[in-house]
Amino acid sequence: MKNLIKFLILSIITMSCSVSKNTNFNLLFGSGFKNDNVSLEINDTLIVENQIMITDSIIGIVNSNNISYQQGILNVSDKKGNVLKKIPMIIDAKKIKFTIIINKNPYLFYSNLNKGTNMVFNKDKYYYNVYLNQNKKIIKLE
């Protein structure tokens, strides 16, 4: 019985470590943002708070925060790549909860990284629908 308990504890520790090592993703804010006040939570942790976002009409993304998660650390960077915030987190690749609040309206998304690790939040300019698009290929801006 003791050996079974030791095995279960060891299995849980191993599984939690493997989740944090193999779970990497990138997140951008894309098209449709027009002087919108945006906050973002990932797994109920506040990442971005009350930022005014405007989509650049030339490149089609918001030219401000980029969010990346690698090796258990969530990095929030500015447009020059300078890291503004480092937040240690353990994220499960099969279920990531995103809550994006745009102009005081919350939108809830769940993501599975098997669908893609490069993600973009887009907003419809006219109907206020918000979308989370996932890609397996790296998003290139040319």
Rank of each mutant, 00 (worst) to 15 (best):
N122R: 08
N112V: 09
V62A: 05
K97G: 02
K136R: 12
I102A: 02
I102Y: 06
G116I: 09
G72N: 09
M53F: 15
S31P: 00
N24F: 02
I5D: 13
S18E: 12
D56C: 07
S64W: 01
F121D: 04
L46K: 10
S57L: 11
K2F: 09
I138C: 01
K97T: 07
I58A: 15
Y110P: 01
G72M: 11
D78V: 03
V62I: 04
S20M: 13
S64E: 14
N112Q: 10
I102S: 02
I67M: 08
K6C: 11
T117Y: 05
S68F: 04
I52Y: 02
K140M: 09
S77M: 11
N112L: 09
S68Y: 05
M53A: 10
N112S: 11
N114P: 00
I9V: 14
V120C: 05
D78E: 02
F121G: 04
L10Y: 08
N105V: 15
V130M: 05
P106M: 07
K34N: 15
V48R: 00
N118K: 10
S39D: 04
S68V: 03
L46G: 07
K6P: 00
K79Q: 09
T117W: 00
G32D: 06
L27W: 02
T117P: 01
K21Y: 15
K115S: 13
S77V: 03
T99I: 15
N135I: 02
I58T: 14
M53P: 06
K80G: 03
L132F: 05
C17E: 08
N65D: 14
T55Y: 05
G30I: 08
F121W: 03
M53S: 06
S57W: 00
D36C: 02
L46D: 10
I61V: 14
S39I: 12
I90T: 13
I13P: 00
E142S: 11
M53Y: 10
P88C: 07
M53T: 04
V76M: 01
N133K: 10
S68C: 05
N122I: 02
I52S: 11
P106K: 12
I91R: 05
N24K: 12
L84A: 01
N37V: 03
K21P: 00
N24L: 00
D124M: 03
L132V: 06
T117C: 04
N105G: 00
S18Q: 14
I47W: 08
Y110S: 11
N35P: 05
K79N: 12
K97C: 01
N82G: 00
K115T: 09
K79M: 10
N65H: 13
N65M: 06
I54H: 09
F121H: 05
Y69F: 15
Y126I: 13
N82L: 09
S64F: 04
K97R: 06
N105P: 00
D36S: 01
V38C: 03
I47L: 07
Q51S: 14
E142R: 07
T23Q: 07
E49R: 09
L27Q: 07
T14F: 13
I90V: 13
L141A: 04
S64C: 01
D78I: 04
K21A: 12
K21N: 13
Q134S: 10
I96N: 05
I100C: 04
K115L: 10
K79P: 01
Q71M: 08
N105F: 09
V48H: 01
K94R: 10
S68H: 03
D92T: 03
Y110T: 14
V76E: 04
I5V: 14
N118Q: 14
L28A: 08
M53V: 09
P106W: 07
K79C: 05
G30M: 05
D78K: 04
